[in-house]
């Protein structure tokens, strides 16, 4: 178990390092010296002294590899650099916007899982084949509808036409609900598909047949055999779904005009504020890696075969 954990932790660190290097390489590939260009540009809105702070901070006179090493050392300490737009520390900007995004993604995750579970169970256990077919079509429908279309239409009909929900973020739960459902649909599709398929596969396994032969009913079989066996692929997918959530929150926040990390990054791209973009990428990669690490740690408790590497 300990060796397994250490290996997973090592892999996680490797991914983080690689993600940092990749974004550093991408951003330093920009033509010219992005930071001086930025400060010199008339519409940057920076004061002279902020510009000086920035120049000192980024040490542009240093060779590239030294900038890279310094950047890594700072990032390891949680210092993600300064915004080229406001000269504020990026981590402060993130800290301001994160709570709103966390509330959104958290609720969306719950909505998504709930929806996925309902669909997966309905597809497998509903008595009528017609109804099962109806639910089976739901995931591919969800996957085909872009988030911005769902969001806009929800806003249009629920907020302006029906007046059910506020059209701007007033901090209330009802204002959070529409964006959370919009975002939840995005992850409900793959989760429902995988959960449904893995329930189906598990139910056709010989060991489930054996449990039938012991005289067990469907409820008993679901509790004892099916749920645990079919939740493993879902758990692995949950890590991926988290990435989708982060990406989806960019669009959702833009549609519903919420001040979150997603809107921060869109603004930063529009103003070419590279450190902020890099900060958001690093933050979301870290979240993603941590979630996956948690999933990896949880897996052996569900399936002991993971540790000996015999899972098929």
């Amino acid at each position: 178990m300990r060796r397994y954990l250490i290996r997973r932790l090592g892999q996680a660190l490797l991914v983080l390092w690689a993600a940092y290097s990749l974004s550093f390489a991408l951003l330093s590939a920009l033509p010219g010296d992005a930071i001086s260009n930025r400060i010199a540009s008339p519409d940057s809105g920076l004061t002279a002294e902020s510009g000086a702070v920035l120049l000192r901070y980024y040490g542009l006179d240093q060779p590239l590899w030294e900038q890279y090493l310094r950047g890594i050392a700072r990032a390891a300490r949680g210092d993600l650099g300064l915004s080229l737009h406001t000269a504020q520390p990026v981590q402060d900007l993130l800290a301001d916007t994160l709570p709103s995004t966390l509330a959104l993604t958290g609720l969306a995750l719950m909505v998504g899982i709930l929806l996925a579970a309902v669909i997966a169970l309905a597809v497998n256990y509903l008595p009528s084949a017609r109804l099962r077919g109806l639910f089976a079509g739901a995931p591919s429908l969800f996957a085909s509808v872009p988030t911005f279309v769902v969001g806009i239409l929800a806003l249009q009909y629920l907020s302006f036409t029906a007046g059910l929900i506020p059209s701007v973020d007033d901090g209330s739960l009802t204002a959070l609900l529409a964006p959370a459902v919009t975002l939840g649909l995005v992850i409900a599709a793959p989760l429902a598909q995988v959960f449904g398929a893995s329930i189906r596969t598990t139910r056709s396994q010989p060991f489930v047949h054996v449990l039938h032969a012991k005289g067990a009913g469907e409820g008993y079989i679901f509790r004892k055999d099916v749920f645990r066996n079919s939740s493993l692929p879902v758990l692995t997918l949950l890590g991926l779904a988290f990435g989708e959530l982060i990406a989806g929150s960019v669009v959702t926040e833009s549609v519903f005009a919420r001040d979150g990390v997603g809107n921060l990054v869109v603004g930063a791209v529009n103003t070419q504020d590279l450190p902020v973009v890099q900060g958001v990428v690093l933050l979301s990669t870290t979240t993603y890696v941590l979630v996956n690490l948690a999933v990896d740690v949880a897996c052996p408790f569900i399936d002991p075969r993971v540790l000996v590497g015999v899972t098929s």
């Binding site: 990406a247 869109v266 993603y288």
Partner: peptide
């Protein structure tokens, strides 16, 4: 590594470039 950066954000980063 590429797959562990949320895809849409990765695309946004490339757009900056």
């Amino acid at each position: 590594v590429v797959l562990s950066i949320p895809g849409f954000l990765f695309a946004i980063t490339i757009v900056v470039l």
